[in-house]
Structure formats: C-alpha cells, structure tokens
Design a protein around this nucleic acid. Structure first.
Lengths: 187, 187
DNA sequence: GGGCACATGTAAGCTGTTACATGATTAA
DNA sequence: TTAATCATGTAACAGCTTACATGTGCCC
C-alpha cells in the first residue's frame, strides 16, 4: 500500500495527456516546477511498476525506442483514490531561516546580504510565475483544468509577495539593530 | 567538505548553550520546529563526528550515561564558516498543491474540503507561532539573539497569513466554478 | 558528419526516518 | 514499584539525486 507521491505526480500528468518518460520529467520540471519535482531516477522505475499494475499502458512512440505512456481506466480510478488520501507533508527545512536564526553568529551585515539576495530571487520567481500564468491562460484546450492550475500559481504569488513584505520588515529591523549598537558604542 | 545542514543546526544550537543530544533534539523540535527538523538518527552520529573533529567537547552530564556537549572555539569558527556558505535549497514538494493541480480529477467538493482542513491547520499554526513569540520575548537572558529569532517567527506569520488569504480566494474561485457548472446544466 | 535535443535506463551513494534495544532517574 | 521522562545509540530501510552508459532522429 506504498502510495508514493511520485505515483500521484506521474498518474496525474498522464491524466492530462499521454507522453514519454522524458517529456513527463520535462513537464513536471516546467509546469509543476514551482511546487513539485521528480528526477529520471524516480520516473522510469515508477512507470515500469505502474505498467505492471495495469495503471498505465505503453503506446508506440513516434520513433524507435520511445514509447508514450497513457493512463488506463484502472489508472484513472487509482489516481482519484491517491488524490483523496491524506497529504504526506515533508518535514520543514528552510536554509535561510536556519541562518537567520543564528544571525548573531553570522553577523548583521551578512544577514542583510542574505535578505537582499533572497529578495532578488523572489522577484525573479514572481516573474516566472507571471509567465506560467500567461502560458496557462493561452491554452484554451485545457479550459476545464485551468481554474485548478491557476490556484497553484496564485499560491506561489501570495507566498512570494508575503516573503517580500517580510524581507522589507526584516531589513528595517536589522537597521534598527545596528543603529542601536552604534548608539551604545557612541554613548 | 560535506557541509551538511545538520551540522549547522547542531553547532548553532550548541552556540546558545551546552546540552545533551536528547535535549538538542527537543529544542530543535520545539524552537526551530516551524522551519527545521532533525531526528535522533542524525543527531547522535553528527555529535560523534563533531567531537572527533574537535568542534564540540563532552562535558560530564548531570547523571550517569548522559553528557552535555559544548561548542569549542574551533567549533564556533566553523559554525561561522558554515553559516556563510551558500544555502542548499531542497527541491519543492507541496502535497496540497499537487492535489489541487489535479483538482479536476479529485473533484471540486474534495478540493474545498482540502482547503477547509488546511485553513484550520494554518490557524493552529498561527496560534503556535504567537506562543513561540511570547516565550521568546519572556527570556531576557537571550536578548542579543532575540531580534534574529523573531525574524524567523515573523516569516512564519507572514506565510501563514498569505496562505489564509489564498485559501479564501481559492474557495471563492471554487464557488464560481460550481455556480457556472450549475448554470450550464440549467440553461 | 557533427552537434543537439529527445529518449531510456541503471548503479552508486547520500540523506533521512523509523523502529528497536537499552538503561538511568524521577515522581506518583 | 511502576510509569513517565530523560538519555544514548544502531540497524534497516525508504527516498531521492547524480552520474553514467547508450542510443535515435533531426537539422545545419
């Protein structure tokens, strides 16, 4: 009953349209990339197992050695079961917060740098999300899926904007900190 | 040169005060818990390696079989190096978004349930963060660390509030979705 | 014919969790 | 004395990444 989340991602992607393992990875990386990831080392073994269980089937590929995988009726049922299962949340591991927590050891200047670098990354991220949103909106073929897809993009945008607000607040807090220290040293 | 993030967490925690492996885990779980996690299976082997490298030292424990670990001068230097290293970000894996992305398969009703459950979790999380904030503020002994600690709490709060806003928006989107469907069916 | 994107797969290795075994100390 | 908490450690296993090996088809 090992219902790995990889299985959900693979069956889910194939529920939209049949594709090769290679493209599966490509789609997961680009479309699901802002909240999910899978590597070849996960995908190919998963596909083989899913085929043995009759959840996906191999269609002839466009060329020798390549095969398109398609979801079977059983596979679609299984996907719905998996989606309804409780969410396995991964333990949190935020490297930025780990560093800031020990900011006294790192020094306030380095913390400031860290925040500025992060701000730039998050702004790039916002741009990427805007691009994904535009691309999704321009594909009328998947209209029924779009509301759900846009929700995931919107989550990323809300998170990114919250992070930017937190960065401004934290930069200000660091300013006060160094101002106080200077005052103490000066007084 | 394998600078694992576990090493940062352990050295960092010991930079605040000496403690046993058991308590180390307890502190990481409760104080760093909203953005970090470590298990015994990581902590004890790490402590042994760190001791061999002279980064931490064993002090006699309060009782037989227990030992307090303390940061050495070398250990403190090493911690600062590690904190200054580039952040290793873990690949994203958000189980909630994975399910919502395939929401068309799951059904809008189940998606709504998922969002309502999440809303409750996030509200609890906000309460827990408020408690952590209060506890931190009530310990004047660590005044110099507090501004940094509070930044991490603030991040959690910003994220949580952003998630709540996104949930409201998404619930509204689901309402429109089912309303449209009913209209089509009716018309 | 050379390079690139497409395509499949495996093996080694790292990271991390879980479960278990063991025992000391404390409070009821 | 018994249960809970404190404390240390290991072994088995699951999950995942990376690097490598191999080959096809297309376009310049």
């Amino acid at each position: 009953m090992r219902a790995s989340q990889t299985e959900i991602a693979v069956l889910g992607a194939l529920s939209i349209e049949p594709m090769t393992g290679y493209r599966l990875r490509e789609e997961i990386r680009t479309v699901l990339g802002h909240f999910w990831s899978e590597s070849f080392g996960q995908i190919y073994p998963a596909l083989r197992v899913l085929e043995q269980e009759g959840l996906v089937e191999r269609l002839g590929g466009k060329r020798a050695g390549a095969s398109n995988y398609a979801l079977t009726a059983t596979g679609r049922t299984r996907l719905r079961e998996l989606l309804a299962q409780p969410i396995e949340s991964q333990p949190p591991r935020n490297g930025l917060l780990l560093r800031l927590f020990f900011g006294r050891q790192l020094g306030s200047g380095a913390c400031r740098e860290l925040l500025l670098d992060t701000r730039q990354l998050v702004e790039q991220r916002l741009g990427a999300l805007r691009a994904i949103r535009a691309e999704m909106a321009s594909e009328p073929h998947y209209a029924a899926d779009q509301p759900y897809w846009l929700m995931t993009v919107s989550f990323g945008e809300h998170s990114a904007r919250a992070t930017l607000a937190w960065i401004e607040e934290s930069l200000a807090a660091l300013e006060h900190l160094t101002a106080d220290t200077r005052e103490e040293a000066g007084g």
